[in-house]
Design a protein around this nucleic acid. Structure first.
Length: 271
DNA sequence: AAAAGCCCCTGGATGC
DNA sequence: TGCATCCAGGGGCTTT
């Protein structure tokens, strides 16, 4: 479900409220993708310093150690002073002095992992191979173009892999490639420098606009306040197979790349 | 090193 | 109405 915009919108919706909170208890539901990695009881008494994001991971900094949170395909967080009894898909509660942070995740591809430090083996295994953050000054054109040039896979797959640039998932990969006028099947190494520049700008643009719209709510995404996003209404191609291109009117085409749907306009994205 | 497949899991939509 | 099949916003791991 959640790509960079949804994760960032989630972060923004509770980071200020949870900063400074004292952890009182941890409640676990059904197992998530990985075990917590520590005795839940040992977290009581620690303080949440703040919340950062790296790619699609959220990092809850504690006064000692940190919690890595991932929302997988179907996860969402809530943070509230009052929380109802845990329901079927509520699998993690962080009970704090300022409220309960709850992870709801029907498919359980998400995870909450405790690490002693950001350079601990567990943290490095999960975060170490990640590409650059697209919304910072680190998203350098030279490095991006050089990265594309050494990959022969279709550019859509390279964007999804997350080892060049992070946070671009299945919705925003299709959207960014449309904005850049690039066919998703084009081998990454065949992208010229000017087109790489266009693609970089398109990625930044679509992600930033999606954050501003509260992310995309396709079926059930909501931020930690329970509010939906609206960017799906502005999608140019995603989930619009057969519908007219918003620029040229041609029917949007859907194909399959690596078992995942890709959408593009055959006219606006000639190559 | 890079690419392709597999797999984790549940629920909703579709088709017979 | 019931049941089978396919699909879904991710990504780590194993195999080529």
């Amino acid at each position: 479900m959640p790509e960079l915009p949804e994760v960032e919108v989630t972060r923004l919706s509770f980071a200020d409220r949870i900063a400074g909170a004292r952890i009182e208890a941890v409640r676990l539901g059904k197992p998530l993708r990985w075990p917590l990695g520590c005795d839940p009881g040992t977290l009581a008494g620690r303080t949440v310093r703040g919340v950062r994001r790296r790619g699609k991971y959220l990092l809850l900094d504690l006064d000692r150690g940190l919690l890595l949170l991932h929302l997988g395909m179907s996860g969402s967080l809530r943070f509230d002073g009052w929380m109802p009894e845990a329901a079927v898909h509520d699998h993690f509660d962080l009970v704090t002095s300022r409220g309960v942070l709850r992870l709801n995740d029907p498919r359980r591809f998400g995870a909450v992992v405790y690490c002693e430090a950001e350079d601990s083996p567990q943290a490095v295994k999960l975060l170490g191979g990640l590409g650059v953050e697209p919304l910072t000054g680190d998203f350098d054109l030279d490095a991006f173009h050089a990265g594309l040039r050494r990959r022969k896979a279709p550019v859509k797959q390279v964007l999804l892999s997350g080892d060049l640039v992070v946070g671009v998932g299945n919705i925003y990969a299709s959207e960014a490639l449309f904005l850049a006028g690039i066919r998703p099947t084009l081998a990454a190494h065949r992208i010229s420098r000017p087109r790489a520049a266009r693609l970089r700008d398109a990625i930044r643009d679509v992600l930033a606009r999606a954050v501003a719209k509260g992310g995309s709510t396709l079926r059930d995404f909501s931020n930690a306040h329970g509010e939906s996003g609206y960017f799906q209404l502005e999608a140019m191609v995603y989930d619009r197979a057969g519908e007219p291109c918003r620029v040229c009117g041609s029917p949007i085409r859907a194909i399959r790349q690596g078992a995942r749907a890709t959408y593009f306009c055959p006219v606006c994205q000639k190559s």
